[in-house]
Design a protein around this nucleic acid. Structure first.
Length: 735
RNA sequence: GAACCUAUAGCUCAGUUGGUUAGAGCGCUUCAUUGACAUUGAAGAGGUCAGAGGUUCGAGUCCUCUUAGGUUCACCA
């Protein structure tokens, strides 16, 4: 053995030894039958290189997996990757843009294939990196979110939700990003402070304050508070306003929503461009006419007077304000600070737009989870995040699952083209022209339905249309067309704990491993992912997908600052592995980390943990090469050693069982270095402690150390025993 | 506006159901080391555990309030 542990020489060799020996597969341990232990790896984006956060979850999960495998449980860590719908499509679109192309140059089928190939090219990268960190996952059970069998499960879930009446299609205001070209759920909208101008407009006899004069054309009413004495006489009356583009007449309604002390106390109601106005409209359906949309999906004005038509929102606002000013109808302009919804991806202002979308009713899904939290059947480890989860569950709104992108699972929704009126289609014809028209018109112009479908980009079907839910075309004798929206990425990832097992080639994997034991992930995706896995998992299988949630925190730099490219403080896990070894990386991330709280690491931590690997190595080297093996020691010291050794084993076991992973890691580190090395080895040198006991202690410590530092512990084990068929990874845990 | 989290050594953080003298890593001081390891060892300096009150035989730990920082949610035209 060398005098220093050379991790570069061992890590790859050791990983190959495990992988080739199938030691990651539960099927290699026929005696591990009594109890199962399963973790679903949170699937990283298929085409993302790993960052330090991935290293964190791999380290923690691998510790739990190795520990439970060594304890003799039927242990599976199932890895996979996610298609990450919107993220991936936009990365790909950037690539297209570099070639001067866009998604609108391709029909959806072609585009989908192109993205598929692109993802396949890159997906090897992530798995290769996970292996470098030492992930003992069962790669033979690897799943990709868009594997046909996984998709099949997702579609079945949707059908089941539909059968139970939990799916509906509705024309609601959705959060639409006109740049990204898709709608989002509530959760994906960020709120940012923005300074705008608040305009007070002379609206006939009344004055109205607004930041969005360009939506004037979509107004259906003016509203006042019923208790506002100033406007009592107007309620129920119509007011006439003489705008530069013509006269309009609107009813004045009363609603408690209107604040008397804001602006003028008069609110213009624009149901299709403001969610609050939409709600007001819903309460006064009989008093006002049906609204029209005056902004379209490109963020441009539509259904407005000629001179304002087809302008971007900001341009339209300027034009309208100018026209009103010239007419003396702008009473006041004041700076105004308010928060607006922005797209979490591109940071542009979200446009609330009326769009028929599919929603899932969440109430019935949420209740059993709240119950499980209250009855402690579900434990969330992580600094108060159980309360946050509860808060989310209690306030959740119906889930918009439609996305207007190609890269995802297409909704199994079919419209009958013979009976459904006013289907709008966008398709690429044989001459590569993009046609946007009513389906009926396109057919009149000589396009066949098949031709349209093969070049299809998107369809837009009125909210009143009938539809059929079916994974395949429902009936050969009817001309059907399938919805072009795809599922929210989180709808498919919500099913990960069971879709992976149901899609497994091994027939009984689902029965064998479901429900899983732990869901380990970052607290930042608690509402997006964990909450929805619980809801959907319980609904589909009748059981919680897991009873424990372990949330790790963000990895921060040595000063406790968030890592970001612009700060230049990003740590690349692969560089750390190169410099200090995978064991050092894992230890540094995990030691003294606490569930739910952020962890800061720096160069010094990696160095210290590299030193630890070396310490283990040298302790082993001393004992096997330099130790006098005939030391009997003194009874007292020998007895104390035996006692303490068992205590350490019990302590680490207990800490790991209770998900005190950072502490278990620290205990192992402390006891090995500062007790076993500093005290026990010295005792033996001084003839106080039996050399046999000391040697036995090394073997026992290697087992305890293995989940935390798998490479160096296995390397030593192999040096000592030369038994590749009986590696440390498969050894028995003492308790 | 609301919820949640955090406050412990110079820095970054642990501290398990309340229980002797509050710990680690890095940094600092002094010394040691030709035989496991300088990627080492020994010794040491450094803490009113944010502040105030309370519960208790006993509080870093439980409760209330205050202060500071952070995260998230909700926000009115």
């Amino acid at each position: 053995m060398d005098s220093a542990y050379n991790f570069k020489e061992y890590e790859q060799k050791i990983y190959e030894l495990w992988e080739k020996g199938n030691f990651f597969s539960p099927d290699s341990y026929p005696d591990h039958k009594d109890q199962s232990f399963c973790i679903m790896m949170p699937p990283p984006n298929a085409n993302d290189p790993l960052h330090i956060g991935h290293a964190m979850f791999i380290a923690i999960e691998d510790i739990l997996i190795r520990f439970n495998r060594m304890r003799g449980l039927d242990t599976l860590w199932l890895p996979g990757t996610d298609h990450a719908g919107i993220e991936t499509q936009f990365v790909f679109e950037k690539k297209l843009a570099k070639k001067g192309e866009s998604r609108f140059d391709y029909d959806r089928e072609t585009l989908y294939k192109m993205i598929w190939d692109y993802v396949q090219e890159n997906s090897e990268v992530a798995t290769g990196q996970m292996k470098k960190i030492g992930a003992s996952a069962d790669w033979s059970r690897f799943k990709f979110m868009l594997d046909p069998k996984v998709v099949e499960v997702v579609l079945n879930t949707f059908s089941k939700l539909h059968e139970k009446g939990l799916v509906y299609r509705s024309l609601k205001l959705v959060n639409y990003c006109t740049k990204c070209g898709t709608s989002y759920s509530e959760l994906e909208v960020e709120h940012e402070e923005k300074s705008d101008t608040l305009y007070t407009i002379q609206y006939g006899p009344l004055q109205v304050a607004t930041v969005r004069p360009e939506t004037l054309f979509g107004d259906v009413a003016l509203a006042v508070n019923p208790s506002d004495s100033r406007y009592k006489d107007f309620i129920g009356q119509n007011v006439e306003a003489d705008f530069p583009w013509g006269k309009i007449s609107l009813p004045v309604i009363s609603d408690d929503y209107v604040k008397t002390d804001f602006g003028t106390g008069v609110l213009k109601i624009t149901p299709f461009h403001d969610p609050n106005d939409y709600d007001v409209w819903q309460r006064h359906l009989n008093e006002v006419s049906k609204p029209i949309a005056v902004i379209n999906h490109l963020g441009k004005t539509t259904n407005v007077p000629e001179q304002f038509s087809n302008l971007n929102v900001n341009k339209a606002r300027e034009a309208v304000v100018l026209a009103l000013e010239e007419n003396g109808q702008i009473v006041k302009k004041e700076p105004y600070l308010h928060t607006v919804g922005t797209c979490y991806r591109c940071k542009r202002v979200i446009e609330p737009l009326p769009l028929p979308q599919f929603f899932i009713k969440v109430k019935p899904l949420v209740e059993p989870i709240l119950e499980a939290l209250d009855s402690k059947k579900l434990a969330v480890h992580g600094a108060g995040h159980d309360k946050i989860l509860k808060h989310w569950l209690q306030n959740l709104r119906d889930w918009n699952i439609s996305r207007q992108i190609v890269w995802g699972i297409r909704l199994p929704i079919w419209y009958n083209t013979e009976e459904t009126q006013n289907i709008q289609v966008v398709f690429v014809n044989k001459d590569k022209q993009t046609i946007n028209s009513l389906l009926s018109d396109a057919i009149k112009q000589g396009y066949s339905l098949e031709e349209i479908k093969s070049g299809l980009q998107s369809i837009n079907v009125p909210d009143t249309a009938e539809y059929v839910v079916s994974p395949t075309q429902p009936d050969e004798n009817v001309n059907w067309i399938q919805e072009t929206d795809t599922f929210d990425t989180w709808f498919s990832s919500a099913q990960w704990p069971f879709s992976t097992l149901l899609a497994s080639q091994e027939q009984n994997d689902f029965a064998r491993f479901y429900p899983t034991q732990v869901m380990e992930t970052g607290y930042d995706i608690l509402p997006f992912w964990v909450m929805r896995m619980l809801m959907i998992g319980k609904f589909v299988t009748g059981e919680l997908p897991f009873n424990n949630v372990y949330l790790h925190g963000l990895v921060r730099d040595q000063k406790g600052q968030k890592m970001s490219k612009s700060k230049g403080n990003v740590i690349n896990p692969l560089e750390i592995i190169e410099k200090y070894g995978a064991d050092a990386l894992r230890m540094a991330l995990v030691i003294r980390s606490t569930a739910g709280l952020d962890k800061s690491v720096g160069e010094g931590d990696f160095k210290a943990m590299r030193n630890f690997s070396n310490k283990i190595w040298n302790a082993a080297r001393f004992i096997t090469t330099a130790l006098d093996l005939n030391i009997k020691g003194q009874d007292e010291t020998n007895q104390a050693f035996i006692k303490k050794m068992s205590e350490v084993e019990a302590q680490v076991t207990q800490q790991l069982t209770n998900f005190k992973i950072g502490q278990a890691c620290e205990t192992t580190y402390e006891e090995f270095w500062h007790w076993y090395c500093d005290v026990c080895i010295e005792d033996t040198k001084q003839q106080k402690l039996s050399s046999d006991l000391l040697k036995d202690g090394l073997k026992r410590f290697l087992v305890l150390l293995h989940p935390f530092v798998p490479f160096v512990s296995e390397a030593i084990h192999q040096e000592l025993n030369q038994t590749p068929n009986q590696p440390l990874i498969a050894k028995n845990w003492p308790l």
